[in-house]
């Protein structure tokens, strides 16, 4: 029988551990309130630029915007570019860093010290998410039931998608408002 090496992090050897410390990711969670405000501000700017994105074509700006997004969110949150960002619902702790990719809360395997079941030296991203969400104005969004990830959107810009969707919603609301007497 093979020796069962319970809970040694697979695919996360000491080298990868050294390369990706959790310091910055944890800083982001501690400053979740600030980042929430920053994002709201930034999202409004992106929305304001919607006519520009539309004129250029969302498809054409996808690549440059995606590159910026990848660098910024990669630095702050260890973003994995799932393309369907839920950071504002998860206390600014990226759920895609969970080895099980859980998007709806912690599994039952969290260690007593708050570390991950699969990677014993990593703080559970959902323990972090819960503490981050407690600081945020929209912290109760952690209770939103997230739909399964759409694998086809992986690697795309969620900033642009969120902007396009918000613009469409506002246009629809305006159209609806105009129809009303």
């Amino acid at each position: 029988m093979p020796r069962i090496t319970a809970y040694e992090p697979a695919g996360a050897g000491p080298v990868r551990r050294l390369r990706s410390p959790f310091t910055i990711r944890q800083w982001s969670v501690r400053h979740a309130r600030f980042l929430e405000r920053l994002y709201t501000f930034f999202a409004d700017i992106l929305l304001g630029l919607h006519p520009l994105w539309r004129a250029l074509g969302y498809g054409r700006v996808e690549r440059p915007v995606k590159s910026v997004e990848q660098v910024v969110k990669g630095f702050l949150f260890d973003c994995r570019m799932c393309g369907q960002c839920v950071l504002s619902d998860t206390g600014m702790s990226c759920p895609m860093n969970c080895p099980k990719g859980l998007r709806n809360g912690p599994c039952g395997g969290v260690r007593a010290n708050g570390n991950c079941e699969v990677e014993p030296d990593m703080p559970c991203v959902w323990v972090e998410a819960w503490s981050g969400s407690r600081q945020m104005a929209g912290g109760d969004h952690i209770q939103n039931v997230q739909p399964p990830l759409r694998q086809s959107l992986r690697g795309t810009s969620s900033w642009l998608r969120a902007t396009a969707e918000r613009a469409a919603r506002e246009e629809a609301a305006r159209a609806g408002g105009a129809d009303a007497p």
């Binding site: 069962i4 099980k100 859980l102 709806n104 809360g105 599994c107 039931v145």
Partner: peptide, 15 residues
């Protein structure tokens, strides 16, 4: 006993 298997986790318990 098969740590080299590919973890799927397409859904999570809540979804």
């Amino acid at each position: 006993d098969q740590p080299d298997a590919k973890p799927v986790f397409d859904l999570d318990s809540i979804s």
